[in-house]
C-alpha cells in the first residue's frame, strides 16, 4: 500500500529532475563525481541517503526492487530501506538477484552476474578516493582536474614497501575509462573485477557528501596496481559451509567461544539458490536431500 501523503517514491518531482540531470551527466563523464543538491531524507546521513535518492529518481511503478546490505537481504538497514520504498513507491520487492530490475546495495556486488536492463545503485559514504590522502575538497577537485593521481600511487607504493602488498582490502580505488580515479564504495576488493565490463548500469549515490557518480555498461574499470604487484581479488581461503561454493565472498561466523568458526556466503540469495539446487557444504545437515 502506497503512502498517499507523499509523492511516488517520496521525492517531489523537482527534486527528482535535479537528481536525474545529475545522473545523466554522471553517465556522460564516467567516474567523475557530479555535485547534486542532496536532500535531507527521513533516514540518517551515512545510512544510504544517497543510494535512496538515486533509487527514488530511477524507480518506475513496474520495477522489482532488491535491497542488500553486506550482501544480505535481511540485514536491518536493508529491511528498513526496502520498507521505505514499499511504503512510498508501492513497488514489488524481491530477494532474487535475477528477478530484480533495480538493486540498491551497501558494500557488495551480487555474485550472480548482472544483465542489461538491471540497475545497481551503490550507497557511498565517502565518494572521494583521494580524501584520506588529502582532506580538502578544494584540493582533491584540482587533482582530478589535472589528472594528478601521483599521491595515490605513492600511497599504494608505500604500502608495498612497508607491508609487501597493497594494504587496502575494501574501497579499493579504480580508474574508469582511463580518466577518473573513482571510489567504488566500500565493497571488498574481491568485488572489484565485477565493476568492469558489467552489462548493468552502475550508479553511486553519496547523500551527505552530495555527489553522484556512475559507471556505464561495459566500461573499462581498472583497479590501481603496479606491474610487479598486480591487483589480486582476494577472499577467505575457504568454501561456503552451507552451499560449498568456492568462488563466492564469505562471511566469517564465530560459532562458540573456543575459536570454532564457519564460513558462509555473504550473498544470501546466491547461497540459498545454490542450496535449492542441491549444493551442500561442510556443515549442511546430514542426509539432507537435494
Amino acid at each position: 500500500m502506497t503512502d498517499q501523503a507523499y509523492n511516488f517514491a517520496y521525492l517531489d518531482e523537482q527534486t527528482k529532475r535535479m537528481i536525474r540531470r545529475a545522473l545523466l551527466k554522471a553517465l556522460a563523464i564516467p567516474g567523475y563525481q557530479v555535485p547534486f543538491a542532496s536532500r535531507e531524507m527521513p533516514m540518517p546521513y551515512g545510512w544510504g541517503t544517497g543510494g535512496v535518492q538515486v533509487t527514488a529518481a530511477c524507480l518506475t511503478p513496474e520495477d522489482r526492487l532488491k535491497v542488500i546490505d553486506q550482501g544480505a537481504d535481511d540485514t536491518t538497514n536493508a529491511v528498513s530501506i526496502r520498507r521505505f520504498f514499499q511504503r512510498t513507491a508501492g513497488v514489488e520487492t524481491t530477494e532474487r538477484t535475477t528477478d530484480a530490475t533495480v538493486i540498491q546495495t551497501r558494500h557488495r556486488i551480487p555474485e550472480q552476474p548482472l544483465a542489461e536492463g538491471q540497475i545497481l545503485v551503490y550507497q557511498v559514504p565517502i565518494p572521494e578516493p583521494l580524501r584520506f590522502l588529502e582532506p580538502r575538497e578544494t584540493e582533491t577537485r584540482k587533482m582530478h582536474e589535472l589528472e594528478e593521481y601521483g599521491l595515490m600511487h605513492v600511497k599504494l607504493y608505500e604500502d608495498i614497501a612497508r607491508h609487501g602488498e597493497i594494504a587496502t582490502a575494501y574501497a579499493y580505488p579504480v580508474r574508469v575509462e582511463g580518466r577518473y580515479v573513482m571510489d567504488p564504495s566500500p565493497i571488498p576488493k574481491f568485488d572489484n573485477p565485477k565493476l568492469a565490463g558489467n552489462p548493468a548500469i552502475q550508479l553511486f549515490g553519496a547523500g551527505r557528501e552530495a555527489r553522484i557518480h556512475a559507471v556505464p555498461p561495459y566500461s573499462d574499470v581498472v583497479s590501481l596496481d603496479f606491474e610487479d604487484h598486480p591487483f589480486a581479488a582476494s577472499k577467505a581461503d575457504h568454501e561456503c559451509d552451507l552451499c560449498g561454493s568456492a568462488g563466492s565472498y564469505l562471511d566469517e561466523v564465530i560459532t562458540d567461544d573456543r575459536g570454532t568458526r564457519m564460513f558462509v556466503c555473504s550473498d544470501t540469495d546466491f547461497c540459498a539458490s545454490r542450496q535449492a539446487q542441491g549444493h551442500r557444504g561442510r556443515l549442511s545437515p546430514q542426509g539432507a536431500t537435494p
Binding site: 509523492n7 511516488f8 517514491a9 529532475r17 536525474r20 553517465l27 530511477c58 511503478p61 548500469i201 556512475a214
Partner: peptide
C-alpha cells in the same frame, strides 16, 4: 500523470545515455 510518466521517460533517457 507526471510522477509515473516522467519516471518511465527518465528510464528511457537513462538507458539511452548509458548505452
Amino acid at each position: 500523470d507526471p510522477s509515473t510518466q516522467s519516471a518511465h521517460a527518465f528510464r528511457a533517457l537513462l538507458e539511452a545515455m548509458a548505452r
